[in-house]
Structure formats: C-alpha cells, structure tokens
C-alpha cells in the first residue's frame, strides 16, 4: 500500500488556526503541526509532534489527544489558541 501524506486545516473556535501534515501507513510516521498559535516554550512543539508519531493511523481522536496531553504535561508546555483536543482533531482530519 505504501505511505500516504494528508494535510488538513482547522480553525479552533475562539482560538487559532492549526494545520497538520501527516505521513502515515499503518501508523503515523511523520507529523508536522503549523499555524498561528503560541507554544511556550517554543521547542515544545517538537515534543507534541513526536508524541503523535508512532500512533496507529486508525487511532481515535481521544487516544491521540491523550498522547498529546501527556507530552504537554511532561514537558511543562503552555499552549495558547490550541489544545490537545484540537491537535488530535486536525491530525485525524489529515489522515481521513
């Protein structure tokens, strides 16, 4: 079947714009999150992206959100304009 790449954009209600570009086969191999949001410290976005990589491509939004929230908590990351749920939502949109 081979790898596929999907991209989706989502405007978080009362928040910021978030785009996910996901390369996947049976699991998500590469995840790139972009947008006009804020992440403090800024390096924290890499930890968020890494937390999604390796998750099964057919995982549900809740499972993705749990992984992202764990990375946010473990790395003491503050997000403004996005959150774990919105990240999970756009990642899932990208691989549909």
């Amino acid at each position: 079947m081979g790898e596929s790449t999907g991209k989706a954009t989502y405007k978080v209600p009362h928040g910021k714009l978030i785009t996910a570009k996901v390369t996947y086969e049976t699991s998500m191999a590469r995840v790139e999150i972009t947008g006009d949001f804020f992440v403090h410290p800024e390096d924290g976005l890499s930890a968020i992206e890494s937390s999604i990589e390796g998750i099964a491509a057919n995982a549900n939004e809740h499972d993705i959100a749990v992984a992202v929230q764990s990375a946010i908590d473990a790395n003491n990351i503050q997000t403004i304009g996005i959150d774990a749920v919105s990240i999970a939502k756009v990642v899932k949109m990208a691989i549909r």
Partner: peptide, 9 residues
C-alpha cells in the same frame, strides 16, 4: 510569519 507557521502556506 510566526514561529510555527509554514512560509510556503
């Protein structure tokens, strides 16, 4: 552009 944006996008 912001720190997390894509220049091309």
């Amino acid at each position: 552009i912001g720190r997390f944006q894509s220049m091309r996008d």
